Amino acid sequence: MTTFQIEAFITLATTLNYTKASNLLHTTQPNLSKLIISMEQELEAKLIDRNRRGVSLTPAGMAFLKDATKIMKLYDAAVTNVQEIEAGIRGTIKIGFLSTALIHLLPKIVSTFNERYPDINLELYDYAFTPLMSSLLDNKIDVALIPDRELDSISRLEKKFLYADDMCVVLPKNHPLNTVDGVDLSVFAQEPFVMIDPNISDRDYDLVYSICIANGFYPKVNLKVNTLNNLLLMVECGQGISILARHMEHYATDNLDFIGIRGSEKAFKMVCAWRRDQNPCIPSLLEVIDECLAL
Results as ranks from 00 to 15, higher is better:
151 L>M: 06
152 D>F: 02
152 D>S: 15
154 I>P: 08
157 L>P: 06
158 E>M: 02
159 K>I: 13
159 K>A: 12
160 K>A: 08
160 K>G: 02
161 F>L: 06
162 L>Q: 14
163 Y>I: 14
164 A>E: 13
166 D>G: 07
166 D>I: 12
167 M>G: 07
170 V>N: 03
178 N>P: 03
178 N>V: 08
179 T>I: 10
180 V>I: 09
182 G>L: 00
182 G>H: 00
184 D>Y: 03
186 S>M: 10
187 V>D: 01
187 V>C: 04
191 E>N: 02
196 I>G: 08
196 I>H: 08
200 I>G: 05
201 S>T: 13
203 R>G: 13
203 R>C: 15
206 D>W: 02
209 Y>E: 14
212 C>K: 14
217 F>R: 11
219 P>N: 05
222 N>V: 12
222 N>C: 15
223 L>N: 04
229 N>R: 09
233 L>Y: 01
234 M>R: 00
234 M>S: 09
236 E>R: 04
237 C>Y: 05
237 C>H: 06
240 G>Q: 05
241 I>H: 01
246 R>P: 00
249 E>M: 11
249 E>V: 10
252 A>F: 13
252 A>T: 12
253 T>Q: 03
254 D>C: 03
255 N>H: 01
256 L>M: 04
257 D>R: 15
257 D>C: 14
261 I>K: 10
262 R>F: 11
264 S>M: 15
265 E>R: 06
265 E>V: 09
266 K>D: 14
267 A>I: 11
268 F>G: 10
268 F>R: 06
269 K>Q: 15
269 K>W: 08
271 V>T: 11
